[in-house]
Simulated assay, not measured.
Amino acid sequence: MVTSDVKSTRSKYSLQRQSLPEAIAESLRERILNGEFKEGDPLVQEAIAAEYECSRMPVREAFRQLEAAGLIAFKIHKGAVVTTLPSDQIMELFELRAMLESDLLSHALPKMTDDDLSNSEAILVQLEDAYHERDIGKVGALNWEFHRSHYLPAERVQTLSLVQGINVQTDRYIRLQLLLTRGFEDAEREHREILRLCKERNADAVSFLKAHIIKAGQNLLVALGKRRTD
Results as ranks from 00 to 15, higher is better:
C198P: 06
L43R: 05
L20Q: 11
R156A: 15
V222Y: 10
H191C: 09
G79Y: 06
L162F: 15
D230A: 11
H147C: 13
T181E: 05
H150V: 01
D230L: 05
H107C: 06
S149N: 03
L117E: 07
T229I: 07
L160E: 03
P42Y: 04
V59C: 00
I174F: 14
E92N: 15
A69D: 07
G35H: 08
L85F: 12
P86W: 06
S118W: 07
G225Q: 00
I123P: 08
I194Q: 01
E128T: 12
S207A: 09
A122M: 11
Q126E: 15
Y151F: 13
S11M: 11
L71Q: 10
E53K: 09
E30I: 08
K75I: 13
V125W: 08
A154N: 02
V206C: 00
K75H: 07
E188M: 13
L221H: 09
K75R: 06
V2C: 10
V59F: 03
F37R: 04
L220R: 07
A49G: 04
A203G: 06
Q218T: 11
R17G: 07
S120L: 04
I123E: 03
Y13G: 02
E185M: 09
A23I: 06
S19H: 15
R192P: 10
R97T: 01
K12G: 14
S161T: 15
F208R: 00
D88Y: 13
Q89W: 10
D186I: 11
E200R: 05
N143P: 04
D41Q: 04
